[in-house]
């Protein structure tokens, strides 16, 4: 009996194995549970037991938990449309405009997250403004008391993506966490929405 048929029979098996790598698959999967351990960057698991190697790469460190604990409620103006909040945000709205929408994000993080100055300067960086020094901070923010909440409100205009962009922001410590409310979008639109933003801030209260 000729041995060649054996060799020919083996070939299709090998070709089949290669083709499977390029198949798109679709299936139904259960939802992932929310992350158990906060702030854990995924490290590369190595095949041998022993000292685990760190990946040595700078992570876009977004695996930060949002604050748990005291929650706030708010009433948003009618013209703001609700967006799905996503894993990082406590709330998210879109404000429709003629040349682009503005985005309102509500986020909360444990602790003081680096302090008010650092966060203000982060926002300023996003619209191409130079950072403020500590002694200029007081002149660039407005303190507001809403019920038991103490808010610092800022209003900055700069450019992002070549277009004039404005950020209206409010920062408030709530229990052990810090809450951030940031309305960012085209300059004209955000300026127009400022009264609505201030009204929104005044509706904040603990749940």
């Amino acid at each position: 009996m000729s041995p060649r048929p054996f060799a020919y029979a083996a070939l299709p098996l090998l070709l089949l194995a290669g083709c499977k790598d390029r198949e798109i698959t679709a299936y139904r999967a259960p939802k992932d549970p929310p992350p158990v351990m906060p702030g854990m960057p995924p490290s590369s698991g190595n095949p041998e037991a022993g000292a685990p190697a760190s990946s040595g790469q700078d992570m876009a460190s977004t695996a930060v938990p949002t604050a748990s604990g005291e929650e706030l409620t708010w009433t948003a103006p009618a013209q703001w449309t609700v967006k799905p909040a996503g894993a990082m945000r406590k709330g998210s709205f879109a404000v429709k405009g003629d040349d682009g929408d503005a985005d309102l994000s509500i986020t909360a993080f444990p602790g003081s997250t680096g302090g008010l100055l650092a966060n203000i300067n982060r926002w300023r960086g996003q619209i191409g403004l130079p950072p403020l020094a500590e002694n200029d901070l007081a002149a660039n923010k407005v303190h507001l008391d809403v019920g038991e909440l103490h808010l610092d409100v800022v209003d900055f205009a700069g450019t992002a993506g070549g277009k004039p962009t404005r950020i209206l922001g409010a920062v408030a410590p709530v229990g052990d966490n810090t809450w951030f409310f940031k309305l960012m979008g085209p300059d004209a639109l955000v300026s127009r929405e400022k009264p609505a933003f201030m009204e929104f801030i005044h509706t904040l209260k603990p749940r």
Binding site: D21, E23, T25, A26, Y27, A29, P30, K31
Partner: peptide, 10 residues
């Protein structure tokens, strides 16, 4: 709310 429909592109 109970499951995800996944499309996986290798």
């Amino acid at each position: 709310p109970d499951y995800n429909e996944v499309v996986a592109i290798p």
